[in-house]
Design a protein around this nucleic acid. Sequence first.
RNA 1: UGGGGUAUAGUGUAAUGGUAGCACGAUAGAUUCUGGUUCUAUUUGUCCGGGUUCGAAUCCUGGUACCCCAGCCA
Length: 569
Amino acid sequence: MQKSENDGNKEGSVDFIRAIVAEDISTNKWDGKVITRFPPEPNGFLHIGHAKSICLNFGIADENSGGQCNLRFDDTNPVTEEDRYVNSIQEDVRWLGWDWDENLYYASDYFEQMYDYAVQLIEKGHAYVCELNARQISEYRGTLTTPGKESPYRNRSVEENIDLFRRMKDGEFKDGSHVLRARIDMASPNMNLRDPVMYRILHAEHHRTGSVWSIYPTYDWAHGLEDSIEGITHSICTLEFENHRPLYDWYLDKLEVHHPQQIEFARLELTYTVMSKRKLLQLVDEGHVNGWDDPRMPTICGMHRRGYSPEAIREFCRRIGINKFNSTIDIALLEHCIREALNKTSNRVMAVLRPLKVVIENYPEGEEEWMDAVNNPEDQSAGTRKVPFSRVIYIEQDDFMEDPPRKFFRLGPGREVRLRYAYFITCTDVVKNDDGEIVELHCSYDPATQGGNAPDGRKVKSTLHWVSASHALRAEVRLYDHLFTKERPEEAKDGEDFRSNLNPQSLQILSDCMVEPGLKDAKPFERIQFERLGYFCIDTDSTADRLIINRTVTLRDTWAKVQKKGNKK
RNA sequence: UGGGGUAUAGUGUAAUGGUAGCACGAUAGAUUCUGGUUCUAUUUGUCCGGGUUCGAAUCCUGGUACCCCAGCCA
């Protein structure tokens, strides 16, 4: 995984972060070491945006000899964090293909040391206990254009601060009554430097430390320390923390401890979806989707269930690059990456989503043949299989038109097409019900075309997939489309929000699908291609007697495009 | 009206003073027992204005636009 040879351009072209790392190695800045970290807060599920960060941090560690990437849970806020998130995050990172070896850490492991650091700062006169309430602190902070006011508690003695801080820790005070603040500059143009809060009182049960602490460090105080304690060399984070860097610098300098280099990059945005934890949570809570692992969600577990492969996600993260400005990636690139990966790796199967019965009248009743079919034309080693053929089969409703337009190559009255791996058939009759709907086709077959080739060399314009009626397995297939109808779901009318752009057709359930019998023992998460339709994945809801299958993504479909264009005219 | 960032085809990303390239998308064609895959071709770009230079996406200068910051969230 050396060098992301960014898409065929000159070798050695790397993103600006990797360039910094390479430079630091060549100058021996950190004794040639590279230690990064992925620091999620265990209060939610990982999504594709996190994958970008994961691939960056673990990727850089992986590409450099002796590199190391820590998985560190930033668990400084007990009221939102839970063990189940710790578990799912580890699962997702591992599934994506990364390994933190022994380097699994928790911010809460450092609570004692952070407390000592805070005492040091107090002793040096750099921190004080403030008894202003939250609203007052906010008022005293001033605004973007006007300086703040100093807290009346700002000039307490060191002794008094030490005593008060200890009592905060010992649980003597109520939530919100006291905070520990850094003593910096209430007039700083950078709001983060206007005496930021370091500790707040929270009588809450922490998922790891239980009730031993009644004060908890804020992110801004804790995060730089965590990196410092772990000896992180390159602390990679997202753009919004750029404004916080001077504060982290200040803490680390006052403490005179190891000082990592922070580098900021832009978070991932994707068209037709939302990425913020808050919005994703809302989708789940309000039932717009069926949980965090709903295959429509951009969560890692959702994409896993949908049928995405880790390789495809990693390739996507490699291709989107790293930058310092907000950009929105076209979801078509993600879809391209999954098609590219699955084309090479997934076995082909025939399945009919919307069955149309076809009776081959000159084929002997009660007879069956097992046709040879190639499992994966892109991979010889995948071998072949046998597919049963008989007198009554199903084809796709879309593959027949009674009055076909010029560009429709498939079956129509009097037309001849090939049944993949089977025979050429010609439509001889169309059977309709009382409502005029087509319910059945009668066809004849040419015995000489067994296997799918005509000895006389005649061609057909199209090849259809099919299943034998008496052999086929029934299945429920879930078709997914973009979760939102707009490229940028946030762009909603006045008084409405992103939910107004939800796509009512993002999930379509087909319950009478027919698939090859070979899928009998398919297991959840198994990925396959249904020929001519798309890539699919066995869903976790699947049981021994009920096959449930997700459509990951369609195949590229030029016929659909032709149709669309026709409709517009 | 404060501070911190950023600007290259439709989208994303290269090019650190020397031919603006690549990918995705779109379009056209070839091949094909998947209207898939593969292959070929076409299309569109340096935010704007000055300056330095033989030569500027790159350096200087003046604008413009967008993003972030006023949680005891991370």
